[in-house]
Amino acid sequence: MQQLEDIIQYVSTKNKRNLFTFLTGAGLSSESGIPTYRGIDGIWVKGTKFHKPEEFGTFKYFKEHPEEVWQYSLFRKKMFQNAKPNESHYELVEIENILKDRFHLITQNIDNLHRQSGTERIFEIHGNNREIKCSNGCKEIVNLPEEIKGKEIDEDLTEREIELLKCQSCGSWMRPNILWFDEYYDEKTNKKFSSLKIAKNSGILFILGTSGATNLPIAIAETTLKYGGTIVDINIEDNQFTALIKDKKNKIIIRKTSTEALKMIKEMIKIYN
């Protein structure tokens, strides 16, 4: 991979636009046992109802069925709590330790595994499952009360949990601090402008385990390209990022697992940093 080594060497010597940025998605967490959102496990079962993610994972559905969505969210919370970071997460921590403030991680994952593994320079553009906010628009984002634990899929909310999941200011339901399918990216929850600024200053953007099915990740890649950075598409198969970069010169496509690719990248970065 001489082309990759050359661009890593080049970015390492630049004073401006010298960030090494990693954009990760659900594919990175699949080795930890967390199903990808749109995968075969991506049709949610609740009682006898079947939902497509695009129907269930919406603010509109939450407003109509808040308890059902919270039951599912707490089922996912339990799944996340039982998962452990995998080798890819730890490789990224090692790369961050080499690059320090020239490293940034932008993730679509809400599962906290990057934080759990020790990554510090992290932007969670789809929110996270640690926090909640008022569904009626009261501004404060707060931590999910510790008293509220993960649940089995068919386990109902208790009266106490319902009480804790109501806004103290207006009495409306609190909601997970995540991005649903019918919502727009913003800065407060989704770090929209921060992540685009990072993309602008990235000499190289590594894309791992995401297909580019939502628009901010694509905009991040477009911004890096616009300002002369190189895109490295690391996925098992072609995806929407592949289509974006197919006619571009400053691109590298790697068809390996995330862990294999990150080990190789780490060794190259060590040489020049």
Rank of each mutant, 00 (worst) to 15 (best):
Ser88Thr: 02
Thr189Leu: 12
Ala219Leu: 09
Leu105Asn: 07
Gln116His: 10
Met79Asn: 02
Ile254Cys: 01
Phe62Ile: 09
Lys251Trp: 01
Lys60Leu: 03
Lys266Glu: 14
Pro66Gln: 04
Ala26Met: 01
Gly25Val: 12
Phe50Val: 15
Glu94Pro: 01
Met1Tyr: 12
Ser117Tyr: 10
Asp41Ile: 08
Asn15Phe: 00
Asn128Val: 09
Thr36Trp: 01
Glu152Ser: 14
Ala199His: 03
Thr21Arg: 02
Lys249Gly: 11
Trp44Asp: 10
Ser29Arg: 05
Pro176Thr: 06
Phe193His: 09
Asp247Pro: 01
Met79Pro: 00
Arg76His: 01
Glu91Asn: 06
Asn250His: 06
Thr107Tyr: 02
Pro53Lys: 07
Lys149Leu: 14
Thr210Pro: 08
Ser258Gln: 13
Ile218Asp: 09
Thr214Leu: 10
Asn129Asp: 14
Pro217Val: 06
Gly137Cys: 04
Ile236Gln: 07
Arg255Trp: 01
Gly209Ser: 00
Ser195Trp: 00
Lys151Ser: 02
Ile254Asn: 05
Phe206Gln: 03
Gly47Glu: 15
Ala221Met: 07
Met1Val: 11
Arg160Gly: 03
His126Ile: 07
Asp233Thr: 00
Glu55Phe: 15
Arg121Ala: 09
Gly47Ala: 06
Cys138Tyr: 12
Pro66Glu: 06
Asn129Ile: 10
Lys78Tyr: 02
Ile271Pro: 00
Arg255Met: 05
Ile207Ser: 03
Trp180Arg: 06
Trp44Glu: 15
Gly47Ser: 13
Val45Lys: 15
Gln168Asp: 14
Thr224Gln: 08
